[in-house]
Amino acid sequence: MDDHASVASEIEPAQLLRLHRQMLFLRMVEEAIAVRYAEQEMRCPVHLSVGQEAAAVGVCEALLKTDHAFTTHRCHAHYLMKGGDLVRMLAEIFGKADGCVGGRGGSMHLMDRDCGLEASVPIVGASIPLAVGAALADRLDKKDHISVAFLGDAALEEGAFYEAANFASLRKLPVLFACENNLYSCYTHLDQRQPSRNLTALPKAHGIRAWEVDGNDVGAVHEAAHEAVTHVRSGQGPAFLLMHTYRWLEHCGPDNDDHLQYRPEEEYGLWRERCPLVVSAASLRERGVLDDAVEDAMRAEFVTRIDEAFAAAKQAPLPEPAAAAGHVYA
């Protein structure tokens, strides 16, 4: 099995510009949530993806709408990039009847079957086997969809990952394990939770092909994701994509919690310098496809879109209490 270390980015400028746009959109959505959270109208825990945009954007760019995605507590970016509707996402976070699951789940349970975002599960590791199961069903039904399990570095500590990876590899199932290593589980660094070794050794030990990329370089993520997805879709079995990235805000909530000093200032500083948007913007500007005017226009467009979505979500009605008793059984 050959090593697929660092894929160099050879992405076309037009495509990179599109990915940059999507990252900017995600950034602005999450920042808008963070800013407005203090209004206390979004009454559920939120796990924001600021700093990790390139992973969701790069992976989802390589997927088809008909592919299935399963994700975690940190699901906003995956939901939106898989094609989820912003108003329905915000309405869910606001606990509204128009939310993507009618207010039942809040921020940690986003889903939209129309775009293949099948489930977000806030129990670490718990959605990984579901992705493998979806892949099994597609295999049995002779459909050419693939499934993606988004996971964090901590999920690699859970038995569920190993059990699911073993079976996926055994049956050569069409599933991509997309792992965002942001170095932390809540306040706890990877080094306090796992021995030092390359994380791709874990899937490789199951006979699963693995790619490893700079998770803040959206072009590199997309290229690696594209290769991994091509491998999976061609029926050669599962793939694992390791993306190194960093969460900027607190684990759960709208704020920066670095006053707690659980992570070194220099570490955060280095990752901020490697902001996914800065990386892509630099490349785009160098190639002459991005300038201040283009950037400003994008921002203006998104401000309007996001403001409108917040207004719609806020205006939407709360669900009726009686609705809580529905859907216990099919």
Binding site: R104, G106, P317, A324, A325
Partner: peptide
């Protein structure tokens, strides 16, 4: 608690 899971929304919680 009634015979269904705990909903998230404050709109669904009254009576729970």
């Amino acid at each position: 608690l009634p015979d269904h899971p705990t909903p998230s929304s404050r709109g669904l919680v009254p009576g729970f």
